[in-house]
Amino acid sequence: MMLSVPVLSLAALAQLMPMHLWLAEHGEVLSVGPTLAKLLPDLEAGLEGRLIGARAGQSQDPLTAIQSAVGKNRRLFLRVQEASDLVLRGHAVRGEDGTILCNLGFGIGLHLAIRMAGLTDADFAPSDLAMELLFLHEANRGVLTELSRFNDQLAQSRTVALLQAQTDPLTGLGNRRGLEMALSMALRATGDSSEAPVPFALVHLDLDHFKQVNDRLGHKAGDELLRAVGAVLQAQVRKTDTAARIGGDEFVLILSDLTSRRALQNLARRIIAGITALSPPELAEFQVSASLGIIVWKGEREVQPEDLLAMADEALYESKRKGRCRATIR
């Protein structure tokens, strides 16, 4: 049984396929879909100068491109001459009377076409996913923008939290955790045998007569003194060094690449002088100063951070035993 083919009026064809292009056998334009006509208003006058075959390596002549797509049952790509980055895509069939019917679409150039022709929802066939594509595009952009904002915020909070977790709020120096991290890092730098170890000096510093400041002048005076000591230490170390308050009136410095005993002795003297200058005049008989224990580490031995700290602590107690206000360098 032969099925009879529906015969469509031009109006019905335009409604069903708003992006169609109907050609006579030799290329005269018989009908242009309304949406395609919005994009190329004078296409009815002919293909020449308006569309170009866009398949690489094939003829640029639009009719040849269309006929070739029909003959080989291939996809058809036609570039819009006045907007070279807009390539229409589609397919084409030949009718029994020899005429050619093409159905075209915008593909990924949809946004460009909308901008060029001011298209609206009504210009797309309901079966066309153009509206869904536009929806998804905008929705994704919105969500991505929001998510990247979240990410930035999280990264920022994380940085602040990390910094806070390693900082002594009173002095703004590092705290014990910050020191432990810096010390591990200084020691780890030598783990890789390819690099020469960077030696450093570890300074353990304890204030002399700090207890008397707290007891006689109050904790507020004590806190102010600690803050001032922090500033003195900060001023004496370089950017690459670490200064930390690890508890009460105990401070630790990591001085990168500083191993000369003379240089360390001079630095100790400057620090002690700076701290002595902070001594409250009310406490004449208990002048505040500092005792230091310094360990020079040249990378010659494997050592744990806590062992190094213990050695610095011992050196510090030797300074205390010998009468305070001095540095012991080992």
Binding site: I114, G118, L119, T120, D121, L134, E138, R141, G142
Partner: peptide, 8 residues
């Protein structure tokens, strides 16, 4: 259909 550039 064509949104403004800052529409995201």
């Amino acid at each position: 259909l064509q949104g403004s550039p800052g529409a995201g």
